[in-house]
Amino acid sequence: MSEAVSELKVTNKLIAKYDKDTKTIFGFWVYLMTDCVLFASLFAVFAVLRHNTYGGPTAQGLFNLNYVMIETMALLTSSFTAGLALLSAQRKRVKHTLFWFGVTFTLGLTFLILELSEFSRFVAQGDSWRRSGFLSSYFTLVGTHGLHIAIGLLWMLIMMAFILKRGLNDTTLKRIRMLSLFWHFLDVVWIFIFTIVYLFGVLGV
């Protein structure tokens, strides 16, 4: 009798736990939606200001599509490897998870370094955010994405530490799910940035 009761209690707890997790992940989706609106605003601003070069460089003169292609490949691949990390985590394979997160982190960091060195090159040649409305909106839009990437990388480091210390418990797994959502989201945003900022820019659309 008491066994049955305690079993019931355990089941109840599991259900409660499951509810809580879906709640958190649903909440994270809502957050991502608000982040979407934030990026949409920045895209709108960029669309308005992209031709306001005010005598400064145009997109055509500034961007090197090959360079951006490398950045893009790094980020796209990292999204793929983040997916692999999540799959491994769901199968409770600690080492695999850590390995794939390691790869994702390296690729993400590569992306960030490439982006920052592009930024510093522009600034060094006198084309900083102070130069024109176009450049202000460019640095802000792409920089906001970069800032998100940096936060994602920090989060990834923390998650790796958690996995090392605590293994793949439920809480960690839930967070990994959210991290991976976040990372894919940034990937999608980047595809828009690549198309609207760089591709349209270079094509002069």
């Binding site: 308005v48 005010y54 409305g133 176009f134 202000s136 909106s137």
Partner: peptide
């Protein structure tokens, strides 16, 4: 960003757009 980093989103001049 306009005020602290000298950007030009809404400035009059330098390609800013106050109507935005």
């Amino acid at each position: 960003l306009d005020r602290t980093l000298g950007m030009h989103f809404f400035t009059s001049g330098a390609g800013g757009n106050m109507m935005m």
